[in-house]
């Protein structure tokens, strides 16, 4: 009978589920990883709640790094951050498929395998959204000089975005607020970035921007308007590259300061 391992939608959770399934020595068709809360009940299978520990996650990470290589781990890690409920299953399927081929470090090239292809697709999607936000994210300067950005990504991309901005703005205090997943990436000047969970009590704090902020937003809006060549106007092309969902938080498109 098929066993479904139920775990939470975090890297630790999913890796713990994979750990349990791997430990039980299941074959691909006998096991599945499902996310708590996004579960589709099926007949004729066992549901097992995976006990989530850091130890299990670290063990799976080490397993992937050792046998599949760093490049594959990079892809798998990105896939696990995706918003797709089938991601855990795809990762487990990929790991099991890697056992079958002679050189398991080449598993990500095996695109004709459906699970590998799924991981590849999820990774590409997460990577794409991360890259978009690297450009489309907008900081605004709060009264206390902290740079604050709001984003509403589909995937859990904060851990991919934070290193980029930490390398870019090491001397600034900044924070990125992931509204969808209620998490924050916080960086203090000259220090490491950290992830904080849970919403803040007072959203009002983020609305009080510094005096200079409004002036720079005005300058930036003016710039974006002027830089377009009138006789080449092409809103479809603009839409294709910059979908509306990103524009909500972008200074040059929205009307309030946020």
């Amino acid at each position: 009978m098929k066993t479904v391992y139920v775990c939470s939608d975090t890297v630790t959770g999913i890796f713990s589920g994979i750990y349990d399934a791997w430990k039980a020595g299941k074959r691909e068709e006998d096991c599945e990883i499902a996310l708590r809360g996004q579960l589709e009940q099926q007949l004729f299978c066992d549901y097992v709640e995976a006990e989530e520990t850091e130890h299990k996650a670290a063990a799976v990470e080490a397993l992937i790094m050792k046998h599949l290589g760093a490049k594959a781990y990079h892809d798998i890690y990105h896939a696990v951050l995706s918003s797709d409920p089938k991601k855990g299953d795809a990762v487990l399927g990929t790991m099991l498929a890697a056992k079958e081929i002679p050189d398991s470090t080449r598993i990500m090239e095996h695109l004709s395998h459906p699970k590998v292809e799924k991981v590849f697709e999820l990774c590409r999607n997460v990577f794409g959204e991360t890259h978009s936000y690297k450009g489309f994210l907008r900081f605004c300067e709060l009264e206390n000089g902290v740079l604050y950005a709001r984003i509403e990504p589909k995937n859990q991309i904060l851990t991919c975005l934070a290193p980029h901005f930490a390398a870019r703005l090491p001397v600034e205090n900044w924070m990125i607020h992931d509204v969808t997943h209620k998490t924050f990436a916080v960086h203090e000047a000259g220090k490491q970035w950290v992830i904080a969970f849970g919403g803040p009590a007072d959203e009002e704090v983020f609305k009080r921007v510094s005096d200079r902020e409004k002036e720079y937003v005005r300058l930036w809006r003016g710039f974006c308007k002027t830089i377009a060549i009138e006789s080449r106007t092409n809103p479809r092309c603009q839409m294709q590259h910059l979908p509306l969902r990103y524009r909500r938080e972008m200074a040059e498109f929205c009307n309030n300061s946020h």
């Binding site: 980029h164 390398a167 830089i227 080449r232 106007t233 092409n234 809103p235």
Partner: peptide, 20 residues
Amino acid sequence: IGSCEQSGICHSFSADGRCI
């Protein structure tokens, strides 16, 4: 402040569809 990415990053797109 500052860093560069090999691939380059588009930060916005103007009304003519060109990248800013």
